[in-house]
Amino acid sequence: MRLITHNMLQCHVKGCNKDNFPLKLEEIEIEELEAEFNADFIKSMLNRLDWKALAQTTFSLGIAQLPEEMPEELNDEMLQQLHHILLEVDITSGRMVCQGCNHVYPIRDGIPNMLLTESEV
């Protein structure tokens, strides 16, 4: 799972609507991928990202120290950094934990399991 995907996933346990995003990554293994730098794609994703969540997640993983708010202008260096964060960091295993209800979403073989139990839907 890349961090771009992580930035789009929230806890969806029935009734859980406080602190249900971003999901906290725990005990993860990371594999670095290599993707071609593609400024156009990164730019087109900017207004779809939740910047605060991205800053928080990358900080807690010790990957990057992004400004708290999305800068008005993104220079090339910043775009490169975002490219690396969003597309080249691949989480192969670990778990995502909801900070609201503590639900755990395991990640195995790079695939997060977002299924709930029948009593949580």
Partner: peptide, 20 residues
């Protein structure tokens, strides 16, 4: 490089962030 990945989830109860 282009296939970002897959997740296991139920379309009837999906986890996609709902503010965008």
């Amino acid at each position: 490089k282009r296939v970002l990945g897959t997740i296991v989830s139920d379309m009837a109860h999906h986890p996609w962030r709902n503010n965008g």
